[in-house]
Design a protein around this nucleic acid. Structure first.
Lengths: 257, 257
DNA sequence: GGGTATTTGTACGTATGTATG
DNA sequence: TCATACATACGTACAAATACC
């Protein structure tokens, strides 16, 4: 039992941190396997002799780290070790036919669709800067990439609304952005640049991708251009960190991954 | 005033979410500028007519999103818009002289050092798999990359302890891993592959990089090989999401970034 | 340098709402 | 329908870090 008056040596030695650490150890030791339910909050409160808030703080800690998943009305569960999807990054950057995400997912499952969530005028200064275009012309198109009810990625595209009118309205279910642009406007796309970064999940990402607020996301943004090097869109794609990584292969055949 | 008994429509409409959202709006509206302090918790409690826990929940929400930064004994501050460092990813993968991180940081500040945190035998199955090497041979070396007291990245390298004995012990202050390997063992390195993903910050990352537990990190891991394509090390590098992005340039000169 | 007030961090208790099975 | 489990929210108290005189 840990209980009571806060120990000395604050910060790293607070009661809830200690409990979080002990629970983590027990999970690592295999006391509860992935998918399995932990004891209830009340049971753990009793076991460690702490109050509700303290125990919940410890659980929140573990949830932040992705160690457990908490479901209201049900319980706390050890998180499943995720099957990470490796998205190949083509170092050359030839013409885009399907995006690399689609291609990679398709190599695992077949019915990948990019579904339009919505669109609106969005004079983003950032996107306008990347595209070298006045902000007023920009239209933002939000899409979901998924397969069989499971949403894998959320994307936001900023395109020139004047050059590509009614892009969202004419969207076909199984289409991809690059496919639509070629089919309807005859544009073949090339990458200009792509960047990889990370961000915390906000409400929109949580709603579509699951997870919790602040969960780490892998973010891939970039600009695609037409054959004349004129920017066509700026895209910002978000995927839950546990679900994917972007891989660049250079040489050698030794690593297995 | 929002107060009191939880409204209907749970989840998204709880009091603390409402307050978080209102505070976010006020920040966006410029009521408090980046770096500036928000009112104290007590003041905000009074203003919104809620209890301490509720208000703190709202602040925790905003902290998770990276909107504010909370300092004990001081106050809550609007987060600075981060100066993101763009790390160029060479699509070809020639020989590594300095890592791309070092080169990129050096283009901004000059005194970049990679400092050894510690080393230990670490028979990581993951690293062993990537290197095609028995786990027992592996030594893990942890380093910090930073400049003038500011730590930018935490890296963990797994190397062959038999082939590179006493690597950490002979380390020179301003060295880099690739530089040390060339200087002391005459090995020139090439990338085999690199991958970009994201993860939540744990205790170690928080201790060295700052931020908070669960903060999003950009993770870059990969394997480097010698000229004979023999794997030399597996590295896993972590940087706070707000501080960097990895950029791959393909073609075109239109985007400014 | 030292003491004090301010501000956030941790922890207790209690009550009630909402989701799940 | 009902019990169980987690979610939200109130209150209080004291510890620790910071700021200021």
């Amino acid at each position: 039992m840990i209980r009571g008056v806060p120990q000395r040596g604050y910060g790293r030695n607070s009661v809830f941190r200690t409990i979080a650490s002990r629970l983590q150890d027990r999970i690592n030791a295999g006391e509860w396997m992935p998918g399995q339910r932990l004891p209830t909050e009340v049971a753990l409160m009793a076991e460690y002799g702490v109050g509700r808030l303290t125990l919940r703080e410890a659980l929140a800690h573990l949830r932040q780290l992705g160690v457990i998943e908490v479901r209201q009305g049900s319980g706390s569960y050890v998180a499943d070790p995720p099957a990470v999807l490796e998205i190949q990054v083509d170092p050359q950057g030839q013409s885009i036919d399907e995006g690399s995400v689609h291609a990679s997912i398709k190599s695992v499952v077949n019915d990948v669709v990019e579904h339009v969530l919505g669109w609106s005028a969005d004079p983003s200064a950032l996107a306008a800067g990347h595209l070298g275009m006045p902000p007023e012309r920009l239209v933002r198109l939000d899409t979901l990439v998924g397969s069989g009810g499971d949403t894998f990625a959320v994307s936001s595209y900023w395109v020139d609304g004047a050059r590509f009118p009614d892009l969202a309205q004419g969207w076909i279910g199984g289409a991809t952005m690059s496919g639509e642009l070629r089919r309807r406007f005859g544009v073949t796309l090339f990458y200009s640049w792509r960047a990889f970064s990370a961000a915390a999940a906000g409400d929109i990402e949580v709603a579509h991708l699951g997870g919790y607020l602040g969960a780490p996301l892998i973010v891939r943004d970039g600009v695609s251009v037409d054959p004349d090097d004129v920017p066509v869109y700026y895209v910002r794609r978000r995927i839950r960190a546990e679900r994917a990584s972007y891989v660049v292969h250079y040489r050698g055949r030794h690593a297995e991954h």
